[in-house]
Design a protein around this nucleic acid. Structure first.
Length: 268
DNA sequence: AAAATACACAACCGCATTATA
DNA sequence: TTATAATGCGGTTGTGTATTT
């Protein structure tokens, strides 16, 4: 049993776009916008294409502010730096490059930049200001389920349980992360626990340079400060919207990583 | 010159996430 | 709060072109 397809593939055209199709889509979007619904758009515009295909064609190719090819040395460095820090989150990397799409950056990485990096490593001439070494390069984060702090300092990170093969909740294997409130209310056993010490360490950093000021729900929703809330009240991923409303969501199984250690939050 | 191979990048697929009712 | 639909994302494949054999 696979997922239901988004459109009837026997009725839509696939493969490369013709200049005529490009014109129809471009004219329609410039006149009407998306109308907030890509799925319904092709019919309105008179295109025999899947809505997802239209969206992709517009975002990756037809949009007026897009640059193609000719990546500069500066862009190379930005991509290398960000890849080193956050891995293959192409949309985040592309957002840091004016006029570049995630698809473009991904293709560029896979066909050129990866080789360039390996070649420079082999000849030992890698630029020192990239701060890249081979072990960093191989690091694995948890792909799209990884959310970092604004400065990607990796001190305080929420991500999906790496041991999950499906989305049943098995995060019980990780120790509970107490809140400061809980710590104050409880006995010496909790207060001497390792997780408590870690939490208090960050509490004492408050206001200092190393204290992450912003904890992100996702890279495109900047500005929500979870940090204080998590310290004070605990890591409640549902209520903090790190979890969503849907208990089947992978968010529901989120665990929190602090100082390379994994903890589960509390549920309510 | 033709076939085989490599390369670049456009496009698709399916699932995670988000929005909405 | 929950179910469902829409969107976003990253891995992968497909297709046209360039280069090598």
């Amino acid at each position: 049993m696979g997922r239901a397809p988004c459109c009837d593939k026997t009725k839509v055209k696939r493969g490369p776009w013709s200049p005529e199709e490009d014109n129809i889509l471009k004219n329609f979007l410039e006149k009407n916008g998306t109308g907030g619904n890509w799925i319904a758009l092709p019919q309105k515009a008179g295109l025999r294409r899947c809505g997802k295909s239209c969206r992709l064609r517009w975002l990756n190719y037809l949009r007026p502010d897009i640059k193609h090819g000719g990546f500069t040395e500066e862009e190379d460095n930005i991509i290398l730096n960000l890849y080193n820090q956050i891995g293959s989150r192409w949309s985040v990397i592309a957002a840091n490059l004016q006029g570049r799409t995630d698809n473009d950056v991904k293709n560029y990485w896979n066909t050129k930049l990866k080789k360039k990096l390996l070649a420079s490593q082999n000849t030992n001439i890698i630029s020192t200001n990239n701060n890249i070494n081979s072990s960093d390069f191989n690091h694995i984060n948890y792909s799209r389920n990884y959310y970092g702090t604004l400065d990607y300092s990796n001190t305080f990170t929420s991500h999906m349980d790496p041991n999950l093969t499906n989305y049943s909740n098995n995060c019980d294997q990780y120790p509970h992360l107490p809140s400061l409130v809980e710590i104050q209310e409880n006995d010496a056993t909790i207060q001497s626990s390792e997780s408590c010490q870690i939490l208090q360490k960050y509490a004492t950093l408050k206001g200092s340079d190393t204290y992450p000021s912003t904890f992100l729900q996702n890279p495109n929703n900047i500005g929500y400060n979870y940090y204080d809330d998590i310290l004070e009240n605990g890591f409640d991923f549902q209520e903090n919207a790190i979890g969503g409303a849907n208990p089947n969501s992978s968010y529901y199984n989120n665990i929190l990583e602090i100082d390379d250690q994994l903890f589960k939050g509390f549920e309510n």
